[in-house]
Design a protein around this nucleic acid. Structure first.
Lengths: 233, 233
DNA sequence: TAAGAAAGTTAGACTAACCTAACAAATAAA
DNA sequence: TTTATTTGTTAGGTTAGTCTAACTTTCTTA
């Protein structure tokens, strides 16, 4: 049985090394930053997780998940996203409120609970942020690779998910008038600081590079089911 | 903010000192037994809870909850019973499965969550075990005082709740054919060991004193809305 | 009312997760 | 290729919550 804390490490590692366009291994500092902990703390836990055969790791080396570790990590992610969907759809939580509570709910231990919840929600494929919910086998059907930053001015795309789930970011997204499945027209890009002028439902906004990096999109080709150079998903 | 552990202590104290027919104060050993911990462990925590002004307690004295402590304790109980109701009604959990999972869910921190859940369940008054769910102000409308042991042979009564929520006990209850709101006829009582012969839906069973002590009932007078000598609720 | 039993307390130890400060290795830049 | 920067590790310390073993107080009962 994994502790609450161990589960968090495995989920974080899964997100850092497996999801979407991420690279395939992680480092101590990176993981510490993701978890909001100090590298020294993380280092201790890495030894423990290695001992338990949940990660592959050598001193001064990079971290990857073992098969067991990956299974555990993806399961926590599945729970997280199912709970987010529950909160959003059944309990009238807003987009930016679900994450914080799901962080707690994802650690409830009961296979029956998560199976029943999945059924109750009618086996949803996406959570309220557009992220793919792993199925009961831990499989993830889609992955996102392209962000708003990758789109050249003059083109249209569609937002499919957000990379950052923090409340401040999500509130910013709402302010711009954006939501899942909304079309975005990239009007222009400032060559100096990469600010983008975008248009959403007739509303024009200027957004930063950092903002654009956190919006997953599919390009106009993908929207029409045509072949895609950007490898959106 | 209270820790998971502190919440458990306060809930236990509430149940031991406030609920139903319980006495008005608790002891260290009693509390330790209820929580499945050693008295020494509980003793440490008592000092901490006193420091935080959640309990009234002097060395070698009895324990009672302060107003703040009681509020916190009853809130945990409310969450527990709302989650039990959710699991039972929406996720098809059985009577004897809900408790273990609700023990975990009761510690999720989110006022909005519990308010929304209450609304989603349409403000239920009773949990699947017949126990009263405290309302959002922490008020408990009913309390149970009479158990099956209090009924004299020849009389009829109605089960309203169970005192013990453990799975083994509940499975035993099911075996006897009992459930909330079922009528029970006490056929006879063995004067030697106080075994009761009871009849439920035409089925006759012999049950122990210990069993009977854990079934809350209302007497035939209460069933008819007449005045009641036993002070059933 | 005095002894034994029950209830409660203290001291000392352990574990899981965290930290800071100092150090070591690996990588990037000059 | 040497130095500076970044990344990672180690040592030592803290806190919360648990334990066992030994002790003290209070209660019960003969």
């Amino acid at each position: 049985m994994l502790s609450y804390t161990e589960e968090n490490y495995l989920k974080a590692l899964f997100q850092l090394t497996k999801e979407n366009d991420r690279k395939k291994e992680a480092g101590t500092n990176e993981l510490a930053a993701h978890l909001g902990l100090k590298p020294a703390t993380v280092n201790d836990m890495l030894k423990k997780l290695k001992e338990k055969k949940l990660i592959n790791y050598e001193k001064y080396g990079k971290i990857t998940l073992t098969k067991t570790g990956m299974k555990a990590g993806v399961e926590v992610l599945r729970k997280h996203r199912l709970w987010e969907t529950f909160l959003f759809e059944k309990l009238e939580f807003s987009w930016d409120e679900v994450h914080q509570v799901a962080e707690q709910l994802e650690h409830i231990q009961s296979q029956k609970l998560i199976d029943s919840l999945d059924k109750f929600l009618n086996y949803p494929e996406f959570d309220p942020h557009g992220d793919v919910i792993p199925n009961s086998k831990g499989e993830i059907k889609y992955s996102y690779n392209t962000t708003l930053s990758d789109i050249e001015p003059g083109n249209i795309c569609k937002m499919v998910a957000v990379k950052d789930n923090s409340a401040p970011f999500l509130q910013y997204v709402i302010e711009v008038g954006l939501g899942i499945n909304n079309e975005i027209k990239v009007v222009s890009k400032n060559p100096y600081d990469e600010m983008l002028k975008i248009e959403v439902n007739g509303k024009t906004s200027n957004v930063s590079r950092k903002f654009a990096d956190n919006i997953y999109i599919i390009c106009s080709n993908c929207m029409k089911g045509k072949s895609c150079k950007l490898n959106c998903r």
